[in-house]
């Protein structure tokens, strides 16, 4: 196993203790609930999309440090991006946390790259992104990482 510090970086502790964009968001026009059945993590994601650009994203729910930090970092990263850019980001993030090669510049999200050394925790990191995918594609059912 890699050092725990590769997984639990300071940025992750910071976003876990003080999640950004946390709280209700009634003005949102996209919404989805995510659920990680394995560990009981729940995530409710609200997104405002205007002219194909995400102008704001907020989340609520309870989860481990990895899933909370991932959701927090994701909502920061989304702002100002087009849905097309998000799709590329989503793909890059997936490759990154699974330890596969990727070409997209992940910016601050790169702190989650250490997850790839902890296969049991990949689902924690991807829950927010699966939920975003459902929100943007208006799936009715809550998404699960299973």
């Amino acid at each position: 196993m890699s050092d725990l510090r590769d997984l639990y970086q300071e940025v992750i502790f910071d976003h876990n203790r003080h999640p950004r964009n946390y709280g209700p968001f009634p003005e949102a026009n996209r919404h989805a609930d995510g659920f990680n059945a394995l560990c009981g993590d729940r995530l409710s994601l609200n997104v405002l999309v205007q002219d194909g650009v995400i102008t704001e994203a907020r989340f609520e729910g309870s989860g481990c440090a990895i899933s909370t930090a991932s959701a927090s970092l994701m909502t920061e990263a989304l702002k100002g991006k087009t849905e097309k850019e998000i799709a590329k980001f989503f793909e890059g993030f997936h490759h990154m946390v699974k330890g596969e090669p990727y070409t997209v510049d992940m910016g601050k999200l790169a702190v989650l790259a250490g997850v790839s050394e902890f296969p049991a925790r990949v689902k924690c990191a991807t829950l927010a992104w699966h939920t975003l995918n459902a929100a943007l594609h208006q799936a009715d059912q809550p998404v699960s990482t299973e």
Binding site: M1, L4, L7, Y8, C39, D41, S62, G63, C64, A65, I66, T68, F118, A120, R121, C124
Partner: peptide, 12 residues
């Protein structure tokens, strides 16, 4: 501390 984080650290 979420139980999942406890589990990972204990495992290490």
């Amino acid at each position: 501390v979420h139980p999942h984080d406890i589990g990972t650290i204990l495992d290490s």
